[in-house]
Design a protein around this nucleic acid. Structure first.
Lengths: 168, 168
DNA sequence: GGTAGATGCATTCATGTTATGCACACAGGT
DNA sequence: ACCTGTGTGCATAACATGAATGCATCTACC
């Protein structure tokens, strides 16, 4: 979150509300738009850390706003973020936790969990397909996001088969 | 985290330190073992919420321990967790954020980011292969975790190609 | 034409979860 | 004397959600 805001501020100075809109507009409907409260909290932390500086701007007919500027230190941190590769996929898979832990308790058996989860994944896959077909082809970013989610979902489905073979 | 501890306590009552060991032993080296401090914090919250109850147990030659028991309310919450399907894959992909935001700032171009990231993913894939070959075949849980991570990583690699085609 | 209610702009605060790290206490081995 | 293992607690901070606030403008309706 911190770095995302820094990146947007590197493009041009902005205030909190504007950043929210920029994120929504940039990533489109496929993306869960971040909580506005969190944006302000994060901006406060960034300022405290000297990565941005705020300037109060008065407005007629509107509430005042606080415009944030990137500092040299902020730009430096941003470049290191961009320059280092991003970490890999999560190993901590929530469903897998359930799959391993639930049978210990005698509450459910593995086959039931796997079958239910497969139905759920397939339903999600249908939703993603719908979303993709409703997305205007001009919105490349949203389409790529959806396709990425579909690839991950397919990997989950494949993994489910693998677990079924092994734990049956 | 809360539910994981509840699941372990459903098997048998335990104290914090024991839960840490159980998690490590159950999920093996492929899994980043959770912070011990976090376990105690979580146990405290669970007790506050009436999901577990604690009993002090004195020990000779050892520090005292607090053994936690699952309550009826806790067992109920656990079954609802088990019964509902787990949510799908993350749509919020960290690398993708970088891929979209970085060019806005003029700091880096997309091709460089994609190529660097591909090298990184390939290197992670090698690490996972090594880890898999070092894992004893008896440890099914660890092997499945690693295979799951590999499937996700492959999905990330495929997606990278897709992004490259589209954003080139 | 006036006013009641919805919507947009802009920020703040209260609350809760997750994660890390350090500190403490004591036992046993080297 | 020092390190490892057992066992717990607390301080701090990041992260996330939701609700509350204030004011202006737009819309609907009688």
């Amino acid at each position: 979150m911190r770095l995302h805001l820094l990146a947007l501020l590197a493009k041009e100075p902005a205030h909190g509300y504007e950043l929210k809109q920029a994120l929504e507009q940039t990533f489109g409907s496929a993306y869960p738009s971040p909580n506005i409260g969190q944006i302000y909290v994060t901006l406060g932390r960034l300022e405290k850390d000297g990565l941005v500086r705020a300037v109060d701007v008065e407005q007629s007919n509107r509430p005042n706003k606080k415009v944030y500027y990137l500092t040299a230190k902020g730009r430096e941190l941003l470049t290191t973020w961009v320059d280092e590769p991003t970490e890999g996929p999560r190993v901590r898979d929530e469903f897998f936790m359930k799959l391993v832990l639930a049978p210990l308790t005698g509450i459910a058996d593995r086959m039931a969990l796997i079958n239910r989860q497969r139905r759920h994944y397939l339903s999600l896959m249908r939703d993603l397909n719908d979303l993709l077909s409703r997305t205007p082809p001009t919105d490349r970013v949203a389409m790529l996001l959806i396709e990425g989610a579909m690839l991950h979902l397919q990997a989950d489905l494949d993994w489910l088969e693998r677990c079924q073979e092994d734990l049956a």
